[in-house]
């Protein structure tokens, strides 16, 4: 989202502008960054689902992604690095009627905060987690993270990353999330639809947004322009139904996108209400 003004107030479609703070655009993200595209998709979905500024709590981690609460006029908690999901867990367990939406980078969600990610999904907390996976720590200058590919060049892996990447969606799936999806800013309509679906589902919902960071990951790996990174993301991704027909070798280095997991298990608060009923004999 590189527009320097607010979306048109009379647009015949949902814009989500009622959640945007006055006078904060243009935003801080670099040209070609994917965070703005994701945020716009999200705010449109808020509007379509009838979220109010009052019943919505935006919880953010620390990083470029985590800065986004500063642009919004919903209730918000800007947390500590990696702990957004644990804070959100407390919010949702204490007040079930809030929409709690958690925004994190790949560092936040599955590197420093991996433990909370696993357990929020395992509890099936009724939260929507939106993860910008730009394959590195954007804010601190592009060091490798838990999702950086083996061999990738970053600020702290000049000779290639010795580690292997973690599959965020697979982790959420085995941990017990109800809804898991992946998309990219290149597939913006799908992305918007998947975010809308994730927001409307009970239990733990995850949308992983593979996202360009041309400033760091891109420039370290021969993709200085945002458009080059988008083309690369397009190449790296295949619709999940196609992916399921591919051989294990062909799947290497390719991300399935779309709706990956769709379950309807009771969320933590529903199970806790059963505990309450047993404790009180009702």
């Amino acid at each position: 989202m590189t527009c320097a003004t607010k979306p048109c107030a009379t647009a015949p479609y949902a814009t989500g502008q009622q959640y945007l703070k006055d006078g904060v655009l243009p935003h801080m993200w670099c040209p070609g960054c994917g965070i703005g595209v994701m945020l716009r998709a999200c705010l449109r979905s808020f509007e379509e689902l009838g979220y109010t500024n009052q019943d919505t709590v935006v919880v953010t981690g620390i990083g470029c992604t985590g800065k986004l609460d500063d642009y919004l006029v919903t209730h918000a908690l800007h947390t500590t690095h990696g702990r957004a999901l644990a804070c959100a867990t407390g919010i949702k367990a204490a007040k079930d009627d809030l929409h709690v939406v958690v925004f994190m980078g790949d560092g936040d969600s599955v590197t420093i905060g991996g433990n909370h990610f696993v357990h929020a999904a395992r509890r099936n907390m009724d939260l929507t987690a939106i993860v910008i996976n730009n394959f590195n720590f954007g804010m601190t200058g592009g060091q490798f993270s838990g999702t950086t590919f083996n061999g990738a060049i970053t600020q702290t892996s000049a000779y290639g990353n010795p580690e292997r990447q973690l599959d965020i969606c697979a982790l959420a799936e085995v941990a017990g999330a109800n809804f898991v999806a992946r998309s990219t800013p290149w597939h913006v309509d799908d992305l918007t639809a998947l975010i809308g679906e994730a927001l409307s589902r009970k239990g733990f919902s995850l949308v992983e947004v593979l996202s360009p960071c041309p400033t760091h990951f891109g420039s370290n790996n021969k993709m200085k322009k945002g458009t080059e990174m988008l083309a690369w993301l397009q190449e790296k991704t295949v619709p999940v139904d196609v992916w399921r027909t591919m051989s294990p070798e062909a799947r290497t280095g390719v991300f399935p996108i779309g709706r990956l997991v769709d379950r309807n298990e009771p969320d933590f608060n529903a199970r806790y209400r059963e505990v309450g009923a047993r404790a009180t004999g009702n």
Binding site: L77, R83, A86, T89, A93, N115, A279
Partner: peptide, 25 residues
């Protein structure tokens, strides 16, 4: 559970502190 309150056993003390902050808000 008898008083309609919440007992949460978190994954660690980092999360415990985080959860009581979120709930207090």
């Amino acid at each position: 559970p008898k008083l309609g309150g919440v007992y949460m056993q978190m994954e660690d003390e980092i999360a415990s502190m985080a959860a009581i902050i979120g709930a207090s808000l």
